[in-house]
Design a protein around this nucleic acid. Structure first.
Lengths: 111, 111
DNA sequence: CAAATTTATCGTATATTTGCGATAAACAAT
DNA sequence: ATTGTTTATCGCAAATATACGATAAATTTG
């Protein structure tokens, strides 16, 4: 039951996609970890999170599919890191989104 | 199958909650509309979106439950607007989140 | 009071998400 | 070649999300 993609603006669809990738605490924790550590191995992520290895792998897959992170094989491990291009795109989408509402923020302080 | 909330940081849970509220193009479109128009009636939102009235109502409910918007009754209509306090909270969570990764952004330009 | 307007809710169908154990796949080390 | 290490994938169960038509609820208008 996918939404009709032609009916929304491309930016809204892309931002929703990124938001969805960040819509679970485990995935927030993962990208925060990657942003702070630059890179790290899958195993380190599994050690930090309170969920099973299979579930972590699934979250990593979703983050990869959103474009926010990438993995590279270093046998027998896999090194994960932020995908800089899409990360910047997401950063811009969200920054613009909140910036656009700055006027609102100011007004609300006056009420 | 809810995640064990004690195992994640409160900020991560709250940010995931906001991200989830923004994880659908219709809801992005709604909050953008509200942010740009200050307030508007439910009917205007229904007119703008490519989905049925019942579905819009459901999205509005989710946004209300996330705290990002609020509605006030003006019979027979309902006036919706951004909820300033939670909006600011969300704004800060996301701003801090992306700011924290600024170093990453700079590095990626050097690679 | 009856009719119209506006929005929420109910019921239902389908799809997606979340989680885990078990297992496979890829490779290193012995 | 067998064993160990690491990570992805499969299969399944349960929960949640998405969408809509039909209908209820609340209030205004005639």
């Amino acid at each position: 039951m996918a939404y009709p993609s032609t009916d929304y603006k491309e930016d809204e669809i892309q931002m929703a996609r990124f938001a969805k990738a960040l819509s679970h605490p485990a995935r927030i924790a993962i990208v925060k970890l990657l942003a702070s550590m630059d890179t790290c191995f899958c195993g380190e992520i599994v050690d930090v999170l309170p969920i099973a290895q299979a579930t972590v792998s699934q979250h990593l897959k979703e983050l990869k599919e959103s474009g926010l992170i990438q993995g590279s094989i270093e046998p027998p491990k896999i090194r994960y890191c932020i995908e800089p291009e899409n990360w910047k795109k997401a950063q811009k989408l969200f920054t613009d989104f909140w910036d656009q509402s700055y006027q609102l923020k100011v007004n609300s302080n006056l009420v």
